[in-house]
């Protein structure tokens, strides 16, 4: 892409000014060339051309971003004949709005939504609590092992998730004394096929702890000392003083965690493959293969994708400004 714009703008620039001796050698910065003497008057023509080029690139990119979503949405409205037409039908003649209602009866969409909501909310609540607690301890107390624990939090973030898939699966399957297991974790399914099994491996987030610690470092110590003078317990300091002060950070963390839990796929797929009642939206979408009337398959699948993603996308996009800033501040999670 860069090849399409930069050569063009330099050639425009060259055609503007008198031919310069450094043609071909663009390596040196700020050369004493005749161009330097060009009067800086009015709207510079090549600057306008450059802006045009920028808009062109951005618009091209934006189109590439939107087309897949449009194709999904518009494709859902097409009749089977229109979907197979060549050349393509861009705008369906008789939009099949019905599919969006139909799809709710053909797949357990409401169930998927509910499961996604239950799992994501639980994960979010747990992560916000555990991260703010641990972040508070690491930011505002001095105690033995603090440095050690903080280093661990930094290091743990670097461990890739695939490493934990197999052992976590076995830990969840052999959780003692639940799901038909005995005290040694044998005999039953453990936490497989329960919401707990979906939520528990995500209950603590190392990045979240790191982020909360960074935010809480900035809180004034005097505030907490004053509260202690008044006989306030450490828990109340956390709950009634610190938490209200870091609300924006909590919101950022909560939205980000909710988003990643909502879109989490591999773990949920692994533990709910045999438990359709627990499948979340991504897993449901993945496993709904070939369940439809084959002639209408393509449209219905697109409808399922649209119904399951577009409303939530709108929600997340509207919340964008609350979490994007937090991501920039702490570096995007691996």
């Amino acid at each position: 892409m860069s090849k399409t714009v930069y050569p063009r703008s330099t050639s425009e620039q060259r055609s503007m000014g008198p031919s310069s001796p450094r043609e071909g050698s663009t390596r040196t910065l700020m050369p004493r060339s005749p161009q330097a003497l060009r009067p800086a008057t009015g709207p510079n023509v090549w600057q306008v051309g450059l802006d045009g080029g920028k808009y062109f690139i951005i618009a091209l990119g934006a189109l590439t971003m939107v087309i897949p979503f449009l194709d999904m949405f518009v494709g859902a409205l097409k009749t089977p004949a229109e979907l197979l037409a060549r050349p393509p039908v861009w705008i369906p003649h008789h939009p099949q709005w019905n599919v969006f209602r139909e799809i709710w009866y053909m797949v357990p969409m409401a169930r998927w939504y509910m499961n996604s909501f239950i799992v994501s909310t639980s994960v979010t609540v747990l992560v916000v609590i555990t991260s703010s607690l641990a972040g508070f301890a690491l930011a505002k107390y001095s105690f033995r092992g603090k440095e050690w624990f903080f280093r661990f939090v930094l290091a743990a973030q670097m461990f890739p998730t695939f490493l934990f898939l197999i052992p976590n699966y076995l830990i969840i399957a052999h959780w003692p004394a639940v799901g038909g297991n005995d005290w040694l974790g044998r005999g039953g399914n453990g936490l497989l096929g329960t919401y707990v099994g979906l939520v528990l491996p995500f209950a603590v987030n190392w990045w979240g702890i790191f982020m909360m610690r960074q935010f809480m470092l900035g809180l004034p110590d005097e505030l907490m000392d004053a509260a202690r003078m008044d006989g306030c317990s450490e828990w109340r300091i956390y709950w009634q003083i610190v938490l209200p002060l870091v609300k924006p950070a909590l919101a950022t963390l909560a939205i980000f965690i909710f988003l990643s839990a909502w879109n989490e796929f591999i773990w949920t797929m692994t533990v709910t493959r045999a438990a359709p009642d627990l499948q979340t939206i991504p897993v449901g979408l993945q496993l709904m293969r070939d369940t439809f009337d084959p002639t209408r398959n393509a449209a219905l699948r697109r409808a399922a994708l649209a119904v399951s993603t577009l409303p939530v996308m709108a929600l997340f996009l509207s919340l964008q400004r609350y979490y994007v800033r937090g991501l920039v501040m702490t570096g995007l999670k691996g």
């Binding site: 897949p68 979503f69 999904m72 988003l259 879109n263 991504p282 979408l285 993945q286 996308m313 996009l317």
Partner: peptide
């Protein structure tokens, strides 16, 4: 903000 399954199928 879109899940990986939807992206893949699109």
């Amino acid at each position: 903000v879109t899940n990986v399954v939807a992206i893949s199928y699109m």
